[in-house]
Simulated scan of single mutants.
Amino acid sequence: MATPRLQNAFDPKTYTRLVEKAVLDKSVLFNSTAISRNAEFDRLAGEAGLSVIMPYFDELDGDAEVGSRDANVAGAVGALNMGDMIAQKDFLSKAWGVSKLDAQLSGVEDVLSASAEKTARYWLRQYEALLVRKLKGIIADSEANHEGDMVKNIYNDVAVGSLNEANFINPGAVIDTMLTLGDNFDDIGLIVMPTVVYGNGLKNEADQFAAPSSVSPFTTYRNKPVLVTDGLTSRAGSNAPEYTTYFLGTGAFGFGAKAGLGGENVIVTDERAGRNMGATDLITRQPGFIMHPTGYTSKAPITDANAGPLPASYEAEDSWTRVADRKAVKVAALKSNG
């Protein structure tokens, strides 16, 4: 039987649909309520320019009025507080030599589906890493400019033998972290948890964790979906590493993509490569997408001739300005020793 070849089976539209389906099937992030996706965000991501202006609304406030039986009495109108936030677009891409993929996929009956799964897993890692970078930046802004009002810190940079249970994830610390969200404290759409913290939490509160099932395909903690990741959620201390667990409320981030979650995917053959021996590459890209925390203006620097900021630049406190009330920002963080 002939060895299957990706480039022989490749159809860009079919491949992209398979990538998007795999992202949606496998992603706790995009299946959570923490990420708000809609056609308007997609439209904004597809507009010209490196950034977009998006509206935000503060929480509705004021005392309710008592109705009157006198039809001539008009009701008072309270102010609907809204404003604009600036979201920067991200432009990311990656290419692989198809020969390497072919080597991995030899003998696989459905070459296209198998390769699309690999592409989907790649983009999931990129989206998750970018999310955490932006979370780190807005938490740094909270600590520098808002008295740490989004953070519960139980971390202690001392030798491991000097630590006690209060320095590790525990029910009281989790509740205190969620309470920084005010009366939205229980409206959690996603918890981003480092593997070490997940392990300690599982040991201490096994009854609060639910394993994935065919009905609920993602792990939950206190009935909230959990994204377990080692990416960028820890930093080295002088004596002990610090771990950050993030709690994201409903609509904490807005997401829109010019080309959808599947991005753009093409096969390119360069007959002059390899000293005219030829080479074939799979290129996958996101030609403009928004992943933006509600209530912030993004001002990460754009260097050289780049279309958007370097992902690492989002981690800096100076890359963010909070423009909305704290209650409109649906993010909180717990810093711990594990």
Rank of each mutant, 00 (worst) to 15 (best):
M1V: 10
M1I: 04
T3V: 15
P4N: 15
L6M: 04
Q7L: 11
N8S: 15
L18R: 13
L24V: 11
F30Y: 01
I35F: 05
I35T: 06
N38Q: 08
G46H: 05
G46V: 11
G49I: 14
G49C: 03
V52K: 02
E65T: 15
G67A: 11
R69E: 14
A74F: 14
G75L: 13
V77E: 14
A79H: 06
L80W: 02
M82R: 15
G83Q: 08
M85E: 04
S93P: 03
K94Q: 06
K94S: 10
W96G: 01
G97Q: 13
V98K: 08
S99R: 15
K100H: 10
D110H: 11
D110Y: 06
V111H: 06
A114R: 10
S115K: 07
E117N: 15
K118T: 14
R121Q: 14
W123R: 04
W123D: 04
L124T: 07
Q126L: 10
L130I: 02
V132F: 14
K134I: 01
K136H: 10
G137I: 00
E143R: 11
H146N: 07
E147R: 12
D149N: 08
M150G: 00
K152E: 11
N153V: 05
I154V: 09
V158H: 05
V160K: 09
L163F: 01
N164I: 07
A166K: 10
N167W: 01
N167T: 04
F168V: 07
F168L: 15
I169C: 01
N170W: 00
V174E: 06
T177P: 00
D183M: 08
D187T: 12
I188P: 05
I191W: 15
P194L: 04
G201A: 05
E205K: 11
A206W: 04
D207E: 12
A210S: 14
A211Y: 10
S213V: 08
S213L: 09
S214L: 10
P217H: 07
P225R: 08
V226T: 03
V226S: 06
D230G: 09
S234E: 11
A236L: 15
G237Q: 08
G237W: 07
S238L: 13
S238A: 14
N239Q: 14
P241D: 03
T244Q: 09
Y246G: 02
G249M: 02
G249W: 01
T250A: 05
A252W: 00
G256N: 03
G256S: 05
D270K: 11
R272A: 13
G274W: 00
M277Q: 12
R285I: 12
P287T: 12
P287C: 11
G288R: 03
F289L: 13
I290Q: 01
P293G: 00
Y296G: 00
T297F: 02
N306M: 08
A316S: 11
E317S: 10
E317Y: 12
E317H: 04
T321K: 09
A324S: 01
A324K: 00
A328M: 00
A328C: 00
N337I: 01
